[in-house]
Design a binder for these strands. Structure first.
Lengths: 242, 242
DNA sequence: GACAAACTCGAACGCATGTTCGATTCAAAT
DNA sequence: ATTTGAATCGAACATGCGTTCGAGTTTGTC
C-alpha cells in the first residue's frame, strides 16, 4: 500500500475503484457509491458501539450484509474506512455550518446559528459524531492530517465568531481566545457522552441552553431562553458523567 | 474467573494475593503494593498513549520492567488492571475534592475550589485522567458499576454546589440543573484533548478562566479574573480541536 | 539448614484479527 | 455470442493477542 490514504481531490479514495465515470457518462451517483454508503453507515454504527479498535471487519461486514472479502472492494483497509467516515462527517459539518451562516449578520446571532447547527447535526447523526469525537486520533499519517485540516477550518470559523462577539460586546474582556473557543467545543464535543435527543430535551432546547451558558459566560449579560422552547425540567436524568 | 472484578472493601483486588498482612505484622505498605503501583503507573502511561484496546500486556510489561507472566501476579486480567487505574483515580479525585471543600462556605467559593481542585488534579495526573475520560466505558460488569458509583458521587457533589450557586445568585433561572452540571463536566473532561500544563497557561489561570465562563454563564454577572494569575495571551496556540 | 510462601519468568496454547488469493457470478458493450 | 471488467465470496495466511502452566529463584521463618 503505497498511497497510504489515497484520496483524489474530493474523497473517492481509490486507484482501482471507478475513478472515471463508472456506468453512464454523466450521472455520477452509481450502485458503487450507494453500496459504499451502505457499508460506511453500517461501520459507523458498529464503531460507535464497540470503539474503533474493537470493531472487527467481520462484524462490520455482517452488519452491512457483505462478505468479509467483499468489503475490500469498497474500502482499502480498516483505517481507510474510518477515514472515510470521519472525512465525510467533518466535511458535512463544515458545509452545513457555512450554509446556515450565509446571510446571518449579528455576531450573537451567528453564534446562536453555529451552536444550533452543531447540535442539530449531532442529533441527526449520533453515531457519526460519536465516532468523530471519540476516535479523533485513531487515524495516522496522511489520513489524520487531512481530517485535521477540516477540523481546523471548523475551529477557525467558530473562533472568528467568538472573537466578533467579544469585540462587539465585551471589548475589554481578557479571556484568552483559544481557551474560550475550546470551552465551547468542549461543551459540544462531550455531548456524545450524555445527551440523547428526545422530546423531553429537544436539540433546540439544548442549543438555547448551551448558548445561554456560553454567551452569558463570555459577555456579562445572560441571554434568556426563549419561552416556547424551554427545556423540560420534570424528570430526573440518568446519572452518567465523569 | 468467578469473582469478576474481586475487590474487598478498599481496593486490594485479590483472593490469592496477600490478603492478610504480607510481611511484618502491622505495616501494610509492602513491596507488593509498591510493585503494583509501579505496574499501574506504567500501564497508565501506555494506555493513555495507545488507548486501552491497543495497549498490549506485553507493552505494559516491558514498560514496567516485569515479564509478561510476572504481571499476572499483581493483576488478575487486563480489564482488572484498567479497573484499578480508574478506581484509584476517581477515588483520589473525589477525596481530593472533599478535603479541599472542607470549611469553605460561600457557594461561589465552593465552585471555585471545585474547578481548581479538578484542574489541579488533572494537571498533575495527566495520563491517569486521560485514561479516565477516554476509557469511560471500556470496563464491563461489576468493575464498570463500581467506578460508576464513585463518578456519581462526584457528580452529586458538583451538582449540589451548582444548585446552591443558582439558588443564591440566580433564583429565577430556568436552567436545567442536569444540563448545567454536564456543561461544566464537559469543559473539565474535554481538557485532556487540548490542554497541556505549562507556564504560559498555568492550571490556576485556566481554572479562573473556566470559572469565569461557567459562572458568568449561569448567573448574570461575570467574575473578573484576578490580575496576578492572568493567562498569557501572547503566543498562538496549536490548533487541536474537533 | 529446612521449609513454605512469595515472586519471577520462558514457553506455549487457543483464538481473533486484518488482509489477500483465486475462483465464480453478473452485467453491460461490441 | 463473446469479451471485458466489476462485484462477490469461501478459504486461507500470518500475526499479535490475553492468559496459563510449570518450573525456577528469592526471601523470610522456625
Amino acid at each position: 500500500m503505497v498511497d497510504e490514504m489515497g484520496m483524489r481531490g474530493l474523497e473517492r479514495a481509490f486507484e482501482k475503484g471507478p475513478v472515471f465515470e463508472p456506468r453512464g457518462s454523466s450521472e455520477s451517483r452509481t450502485a458503487f457509491d450507494e453500496r459504499l454508503d451502505q457499508i460506511l453507515a453500517a461501520a459507523t454504527v458498529v464503531i460507535a458501539r464497540e470503539g474503533y479498535a474493537n470493531a472487527s471487519m467481520r462484524a462490520v461486514a455482517k452488519s452491512a450484509k457483505v462478505s468479509l472479502a467483499g468489503m475490500y472492494h469498497y474500502v482499502n483497509s480498516k483505517e481507510h474506512m474510518l477515514f472515510l467516515i470521519q472525512f465525510r462527517a467533518f466535511s458535512s459539518l463544515l458545509n452545513n455550518l457555512r450554509e446556515r451562516l450565509h446571510g446571518v449578520n449579528g455576531s450573537v446571532e451567528k453564534l446562536r446559528v453555529m451552536i444550533r447547527a452543531h447540535v442539530g447535526y449531532f442529533a441527526s447523526n449520533l453515531a457519526a459524531l460519536k465516532v468523530c469525537s471519540h476516535e479523533l486520533d485513531s487515524l495516522t499519517g496522511k489520513g489524520y492530517d487531512e481530517t485535521r485540516q477540516i477540523r481546523f477550518q471548523y475551529y477557525k470559523a467558530t473562533r472568528a465568531i467568538i472573537e466578533q462577539v467579544l469585540d462587539e460586546h465585551a471589548p475589554e474582556s481578557n479571556l484568552d481566545r483559544h481557551v474560550t473557543t475550546m470551552s465551547l467545543f468542549s461543551m459540544l464535543n462531550w455531548l456524545y457522552r450524555w445527551y440523547t435527543p428526545g422530546q423531553e430535551r429537544s436539540p433546540t432546547g439544548l442549543s438555547n441552553h448551551l448558548l445561554s451558558i456560553f454567551l452569558g459566560g463570555i459577555i456579562g449579560t445572560a441571554v434568556p431562553v426563549s419561552p416556547q422552547t424551554q427545556l423540560g425540567l420534570a424528570q430526573e436524568p440518568p446519572p452518567e458523567n465523569g
